[in-house]
Amino acid sequence: MSQAFDLLLVGLLIACAIAVIRTKDLLGATIIFSAYSLVMCLIWLHRGAPDVAMTEAAVGAGVTTVLFLVTIGRTVRRER
């Protein structure tokens, strides 16, 4: 059961990473990257590292996403 859950999370992680680089819309890519960070946070919580998971949720999924969003707002949204 636990092994299956691990495999599910890892598969989701790799799927998110591939979706990030395949998305042409930078806004969408940023949101998927945020989801990627959340999945990573779940994996770390599952592995007995709650401190790292909390930091990743706050910094990786929160602040990094906000910084990317601000940059997209001041530059362009579409990738050519």
Partner: peptide, 9 residues
């Protein structure tokens, strides 16, 4: 779990 960085963020 938690600490300065997490709460500050």
């Amino acid at each position: 779990p938690g600490g300065g960085f997490q709460g500050g963020t």
